Simulated scan of single mutants.
Amino acid sequence: MSKSSNHILSIQDIRKKFGGMLILDGVNMELEKGKLYQLIGPNGSGKTTLINIVSGFFKPDGGKITFDGIDITSKNLYHTYKTGLVRTWQIPQPFVNLTTLENFLISSNANSGESFLLAPLKSKWEKDEGKVMDTASEIMEMVNLVKQKYTSSQNLSGGQQKLLELGRAMMSGAKMILMDEPIAGVNPTLAHEIFKKISQICKEQKITFLIVEHRLDIALQYADYVFAMNRGEIIAQGNSEQVIKHPQVIESYLGE
């Protein structure tokens, strides 16, 4: 992929070691705005480590990461979140004692009433509260959780909790969402529904997605562009058909 001003994420020569073992060996990736990217590769290839580094959960040992024109290489998880780069987790982590709606509302960055100084001044945040409620209703519709609006999140199905994670990320005003196995443990019908929702949101809301997923038979149908990793390196990239037929990709999976 050629460099352009349309790039939202640039990963340059990222390296990482754990206990002397090289996990990432000079990873380079360029991602454009408003596209659905997938990162594939056998177990142990470095996919989740890369997501952890890009999101600020880990720090790289070398290289540079630029998001939306900002150098985020040394930023932590909170600060990358504030720039609009949000990640979800393989195991959903909602506030289990709150309803779906409540989980959405507390995920918003748009309510000035949460400010310590402004909280006592209702006139300063009353309109914000209404806007956040409207946004929550819109996003619940997008992720098909309207009927579960008042359901405690701990009583949602596994697939519904994945959609809740997606909705919460959107409530934060995310420009880009990193997802680690969003359909793990989900039945095929709901897995397709989740990816259809992600694809629709990507196209309509212009949110960029980078998704790590092992269930390639389902996931690859929805990718705009695919990166394949093995042994800490990008070994192939392109559309789904090109990547899945690449000799190094075939060898890496058969060799697993």
Rank of each mutant, 00 (worst) to 15 (best):
A228W: 10
M179I: 08
E129N: 06
R231Q: 11
K16H: 14
G84T: 07
L210G: 04
K59T: 10
N155L: 12
D68H: 14
F58L: 15
E32R: 13
R231P: 02
E102N: 07
K33H: 10
L31E: 03
S123Y: 10
M29S: 12
L22M: 13
L254T: 08
R87W: 02
S55H: 11
P94Y: 08
G34I: 00
E129R: 14
N43C: 14
G159A: 02
G41Y: 09
G46W: 11
W125R: 02
L77K: 10
Q237A: 09
I11D: 09
N239L: 00
L164W: 05
N109W: 12
G34W: 08
R231D: 14
M171D: 09
S252R: 08
M171G: 03
I53D: 13
V146C: 12
I51R: 12
M179F: 10
I65N: 01
S152L: 15
V186S: 14
F195K: 01
L164F: 06
Y37G: 07
I40V: 14
H79Q: 04
I65M: 03
D13Q: 12
M170Q: 03
A219Q: 00
L50F: 08
S157M: 02
L163N: 06
A136D: 00
E213F: 01
E181V: 15
Q237I: 03
I139D: 01
L163V: 01
F116M: 12
I70A: 09
D128K: 15
K64W: 05
L145E: 03
K203Y: 07
S137M: 09
L101A: 05
S10M: 13
S240D: 00
K3D: 09
K3Y: 11
L216S: 04
Q248L: 04
G69F: 10
R87S: 04
S137C: 09
Q221P: 06
V54K: 07
V186W: 07
I234Q: 13
P60F: 10
S157K: 12
R168P: 05
K122V: 03
Y37W: 12
E213W: 00
C202R: 01
A136K: 08
N76T: 07
T99V: 10
N144F: 11
A169L: 04
